[in-house]
Write a protein that binds this DNA or RNA. Structure first.
Length: 111
DNA sequence: AGGGTGACGGGCC
DNA sequence: GGGCCCGCCACCC
């Protein structure tokens, strides 16, 4: 398990996103200690084990949009999950100013 | 061990 | 606002 420390770090960061809030891939990557590597966050989420309780749906891109194809089942599921938490979509996007999770200044990485 | 890939982001037009 | 391009680097053949 030492191999994919990147995945683990990303997942740990995602777990910290509170219900009803969202975070961007870049934000998660930075929190996980992988600044400048948003792609890594996406890559890790694409491999999220179903067994773990990771709120992968709370991660969207910097444009406030869901990163998956609007047509895909994944997109619909993510959107539904978010709406169930009270996150509203306007023109297919989330208002980051309002729903973006802002970790209190120096919150530790540890869970 | 080398090269392609990606649930991104920021800069630029 | 939208579209293209390039950088980034852990992963997976």
């Amino acid at each position: 398990m030492t191999a994919n420390r990147a995945y683990t770090a990303i997942w740990a960061a995602v777990k910290k996103i509170p219900r009803g809030k969202v975070a961007t891939y870049g934000q998660i990557a930075t929190l996980a200690g992988y600044a400048k590597q948003p792609r890594l966050a996406g890559y890790a989420l694409a491999h999220t084990p179903a067994s773990e309780k990771i709120a992968w749906h709370r991660v969207i891109n910097a444009q406030g949009k869901i990163a998956l194809p609007p047509r895909s089942a994944g997109y619909r599921q993510q959107r539904t999950l978010l709406e169930n938490e009270g996150v509203t979509f306007i023109a297919g996007r989330v208002d980051l100013k309002r729903y973006r999770w802002q970790p209190c200044n120096d919150s530790p990485l540890l869970d």
